[in-house]
Design a protein around this nucleic acid. Structure first.
Length: 478
RNA sequence: GGUCCCUUCGUCUAGCGGUCUAGGACGUCGCCCUUUCACGGCGAAAACACGGGUUCGAUUCCCGUAGGGAUCACCA
C-alpha cells in the first residue's frame, strides 16, 4: 500500500470541514464518506469541524442540516464538533507568532489599491497576484489599517506527494504572500485550516480537488511554523450528467432532498457515492463493513466522475428490496398518510406490512413505494384509472359476475384458493387466464398494473375483495 | 490568460508490459419467466481521445496535440 500508509506509530486522524453556508451537498457527503472510511480503515479518528469564520454567510440552519445529513448517512464523528469561529483568538496568536519571527509582515495596501493592481495585471496579461509591495518595509504608518501576510519563500519549489494525485510540484514564484489576518483582526480561511488541522492532530487532509492549489500555500506556512506536515489527498469533484460542474439542476441537492424528495435509503446513497470515483474489482453492492475493510486512497480515481441518477436509483432499488418490511412501513407511513389525508390505523399498518414483500420489488424509491400502497388502503368505491376503465370496458360479458359467484363460495380464502377459482372460471368461459385476471385486477386494484392479483386478493381479504367487485358490477366504482 | 490536474463502452469503473478477440455495473435493445407491472434469468450492441516514442511486445511507461477540469479574494 506504500504511500497510503501512515507513518508508523502515528494514529490516523482525518476530518471533514464543511462551511455552513448551505446544505450538505452530495459532493460534501462523498468527501465526508471518504474521510470516514479512511479513518475507520486505519482504526483512527474521524473529526468534524464547522468552518464558520464567514459570519455573513454561515447560518444555524445550515449547521443543523450538515449534522443531520451526517447522522442520516451514519457518518459518526469522533470527539466534539469544532467550531472554527470560536478559535479566532488562537488563529490570531499564530499569526502574531509568525510576525514576531519575521515570517509574516504587515501590509497596508488598500482594497482599492489591490483591485487596481489586479486590473493592471489582467490588462497586461500577467498572472494576477499580490506583488509583495510591503514585504520588506520597515517604516509603517501607525494608524492605517493593515493585514498580516505570510512572507512566503520566493525561491525554489514545493512538491506535494498527494495520495490521490501523485507528486505535484509548484514553483514558489507562482505563489504570492497570502493574507493571514484581515484588517479587522479576524483570521482568513488559509490560516484557520492550517492552525486547526495542526491543533486537532489531523494526519491526513482528504478534501476536494478544488483545494489542491491551496495546499502549496498552506504547506509553506506549516514549514515556516515548523509543524509536522500532514498527508494530502485531493479527490476530484463530482460533475453533472452533461460533464459540467455539478449544480442544483443536476441533483446537487442537499442530502435531505435525497432522503425526502427522492425517497432514497442512506445505505444506497452511501454505496453509490462510494462507487463514484472509487472501485474495488467488480464489487458493486458493498456493505459498510466491506467498505471499511477495502477502502484506500490509492484506488480513488483522478478524473472527475459524472453523477448518474439512474444508477443511484437502481442501487436504491436493490437496498429497498433487501430492506426490512417493518422499517419500510415506518418510512413510508408519513407519505401514505399525506396522500390519504388521514392517519393510518393499526389494521392499515398490518395491511401495509403484509403488502411490503411484493410491493418493494417494484419500487425504485420510497415515494413510489408509498404510492403503490394506496390502492390497498383507499375506501370503497376505489377510483379507477384509465387503464382499468379500458380493461373493464373490453372485458368478456359475465366474467365479473361469474368470478364474484365463484369467489363468494370460497370458505378458506387464500391466494391458492382464489387462483383455483379464477382458473376454473377461465376454463368454464374458454378464456385465457389473463382475460379473467385482468378485469378482476382492474376491479380490485383500480389499475391495470399491480402486484400478483391473487396475492393482492389474499392480502385484501374476502370481504373487501368481493365488495370491490360488487362496486364495479353495480356501476358504483369509477 | 498563468499555474496545476485529468482522459478505458453513453455513465461509474476493472486493468497496475504479454492473462485484452479489454472484464463488471447502470442505461439501451432482444429473448425467457408470466394473469399485468416489476423482480429474476439469458443474450446483444457499446470504449482503450489522437500522434510520436521506449520496448521483442503497449490499454498499461515517457513526450507532445486535442479535449475536459480546478484555481488565481482582507470567500471558504
Amino acid at each position: 500500500m506504500g504511500a497510503s500508509q501512515p507513518v508508523s506509530g502515528t494514529r490516523v486522524v482525518t476530518r471533514f470541514a464543511p462551511s455552513p453556508t448551505g446544505f450538505l451537498h452530495i459532493g460534501g457527503a462523498r468527501t465526508a464518506l471518504f474521510n470516514y472510511l479512511f479513518a475507520r480503515h486505519h482504526g483512527g479518528d474521524f473529526r468534524l469541524r464547522i468552518e464558520d469564520t464567514d459570519r455573513a454567510r454561515s447560518t444555524e440552519p445550515a449547521i443543523a442540516a450538515i449534522l443531520d445529513g451526517m447522522t442520516w448517512l451514519g457518518l459518526d464523528w469522533d470527539g466534539e464538533v469544532v467550531y472554527q469561529f470560536a478559535r479566532a483568538g488562537r488563529h490570531a496568536e499564530v499569526a502574531n507568532e509568525l510576525l514576531a519571527k519575521g515570517h509574516a509582515y504587515r501590509c497596508y495596501a488598500t482594497p482599492d489599491e489591490l483591485t487596481a493592481l489586479r486590473e493592471a495585471q489582467r490588462a497586461a496579461k500577467q498572472p494576477m497576484r499580490y506583488d509583495g509591495r510591503w514585504r520588506d518595509h520597515t517604516d509603517f504608518p501607525n494608524d492605517a489599517p493593515y493585514v498580516i501576510r505570510l512572507k512566503a519563500p520566493r525561491e525554489g519549489s514545493v512538491t506535494i506527494t498527494d495520495l490521490v494525485q501523485g507528486p505535484v510540484t509548484v514553483a514558489n514564484a507562482e505563489l504570492d504572500d497570502m493574507v493571514l489576518l484581515r484588517s479587522d483582526g479576524t483570521p482568513t480561511y488559509m490560516l484557520a485550516v492550517v492552525v486547526d488541522d495542526h491543533d486537532m492532530g489531523v494526519t491526513h487532509v482528504i478534501r476536494g480537488d478544488d483545494h489542491l492549489n491551496n495546499a502549496f500555500r498552506q504547506l509553506a506556512m506549516i514549514r515556516l511554523l515548523g509543524w509536522p506536515e500532514p498527508f494530502y489527498a485531493h479527490i476530484p469533484l463530482i460533475h453533472g450528467a452533461d460533464g459540467a460542474k455539478l449544480s442544483k439542476r443536476h441533483g446537487a441537492l442537499g442530502v435531505d432532498a435525497y432522503r425526502d424528495d427522492l425517497g432514497l435509503l442512506p445505505e444506497a446513497v452511501e454505496n453509490y457515492l462510494l462507487r463514484l470515483g472509487w472501485g474495488h474489482g467488480d464489487a458493486e453492492i458493498i456493505s459498510r463493513a466491506e467498505a471499511v475493510a477495502w477502502f484506500g486512497l490509492d484506488a480513488v480515481g483522478r478524473g472527475p466522475a459524472r453523477f448518474d441518477l439512474k444508477k443511484l436509483e437502481n442501487t436504491n432499488g436493490h437496498y429497498l428490496r433487501a430492506a426490512d418490511d417493518a422499517r419500510l412501513v415506518a418510512l413510508i407511513t408519513p407519505r401514505v398518510e399525506a396522500a390519504l389525508g388521514r392517519a393510518l390505523t393499526a389494521a392499515d399498518g398490518d395491511l401495509l406490512q403484509r403488502s411490503m414483500p411484493e410491493l418493494k420489488k417494484r419500487a425504485p424509491n420510497l415515494g413510489d413505494l408509498a404510492a403503490g400502497t394506496l390502492f390497498y388502503l383507499r375506501a370503497r368505491p376505489i377510483p379507477m384509472d384509465d387503464g382499468a376503465i379500458k380493461l373493464l370496458a373490453s372485458a368478456t360479458a359475465g366474467v365479473l359476475t361469474g368470478a364474484r359467484e365463484r369467489l363468494a363460495g370460497i370458505t378458506d380464502w387464500s391466494a391458492a384458493t382464489v387462483e383455483e377459482q379464477a382458473r376454473a372460471l377461465a376454463d368454464e368461459f374458454a378464456l385465457k387466464l389473463g382475460q379473467v385476471a385482468q378485469p378482476l385486477r382492474a376491479a380490485v386494484t383500480g389499475s391495470s398494473q399491480s402486484p400478483g392479483l391473487f396475492d393482492v386478493m389474499a392480502t385484501l381479504g374476502r370481504e373487501e375483495t368481493l365488495g370491490r367487485i360488487d362496486d364495479v358490477i353495480s356501476g358504483q366504482a369509477g
